[in-house]
Write a protein that binds this DNA or RNA. Structure first.
Lengths: 208, 208
DNA sequence: ACAAAAGTGTTCCATATACACCCATGT
DNA sequence: ACATGGGTGTATATGGAACACTTTTGT
């Protein structure tokens, strides 16, 4: 009987250039050498699945504080030509401000817009599509958008995040009304200095 | 290194006595001998996760045609005292009309209301809670309720399913308005003969 | 002065909610 | 006749969608 392995793969998402982008790593080893793949790796004997995802993300991308959520488990017996490998997929969200100090085994990492992906290794394309679908749905009924922004942000920043995820433009007045009357955000006593006219900065208002 | 195993466990739900109930099987083997557990078992080398769930459900409960959806993967390294066992949890929905011919290795199967569970083996209680949460949410934005009914049903039947899942009573007129104007159901040329006054039978209207 | 993004209200429509009585059938 | 569940409409409240102009700043 072939050896059974379990891996975690992570769809790491951020907003760059007003687009939803994800991090891919170019494989050097076979199979799928020189193809891009999701960051991820084998689950160790004594670690939980979540811990494995956090560790792989740190090792391969240098990303540390991150929103992480389990997505789906892919277990087609032929998804990996090397043998039976079941993968537990996660998605992760980081503000673009987080710097990437790519680890030693991830020298060839790059961001790609979710709408313009290169050819991917394994069934990773399917995993990415699933992650994209999930975050679009989740935006409707959660505050998941904040995970992609720094602690202080303008309402325009937040709107751009929503637009990038949904792939459509939103009405400014309706958007601001919705956000403010849900009391999801609180203004802070600061104004953004970028661009022309200073904009009110806000923060996510979970605590008070 | 300990051997790594992957199992599937299935939360099989139905409506009985106007309550959401699930099927549990009394374990005979150690660990957790004589405790109730979810139907499930090891994933075979050459079968997909979905196929394993279908197979285990058939073997252990005799249930065949069934709505099945992957729920979440539980991988705490200490969730099974025998070693490292990662389980991919599913939930399944069947009309109560489906008969159970419990298989040889499931002689001690019984239905329990989700709100009144016995002490369960492993982390199965957590899995059940997760399934209950998922189906309640899913009811809002899908037609998942039909999976718990036979092909032809009355609107009262459907309302009872919703009430059982949500755990609250619903207004009859509002419920019927919502269901009928979404064109989710179609009347058939038949009337239920049970009880006092015959009720219009409907069917789910996916096709046409 | 002009360019660029910030900020701000009202109207309309669709959907959800609250609420009570008559009807058809079997016993 | 009565008990049981089947069936029906209206008024109100709430949330989403459409829609355009003025303000503030830097150059």
């Amino acid at each position: 009987m072939r050896k059974l392995s379990v891996t975690v793969d992570i769809v790491l998402l951020t907003i760059r250039d007003r687009q939803l982008q994800l991090l891919l790593i170019k494989r050097s080893a076979t199979p799928f050498a020189n193809r891009y793949a999701l960051p991820g790796g084998f689950v160790k004997e004594s670690e939980s699945l979540d811990a494995a995802a956090v560790r792989e993300l740190r090792e391969e991308t240098g990303v540390d504080k991150v929103y992480l959520e389990q997505l789906y488990t892919f277990g087609d017996p032929r998804r990996d030509p090397r043998g039976r490998v079941i993968t537990v997929a996660y998605y992760a969200l980081v503000p673009h401000t987080q710097s990437l100090r790519a680890g030693s085994d991830a020298s060839d990492a790059a961001w790609f817009p979710v709408t313009r992906l290169p050819s991917l290794a394994f069934d990773h394309r399917k995993i990415v599509e699933y992650a994209h679908l999930r975050i679009r749905n989740k935006l409707d009924y959660t505050n998941v958008g904040f995970e992609l922004l720094p602690a202080k942000f303008t309402l325009t920043d937040l709107q751009l995040v929503h637009e990038a995820i949904l792939g459509e433009t939103l009405d400014k007045r309706n958007f601001r009304k919705r956000i403010t009357q849900k009391a999801i955000v609180k203004p802070v006593e600061e104004w953004a200095q970028t661009g022309r006219r200073p904009a009110q900065l806000y923060r996510f208002s979970d605590s008070d």
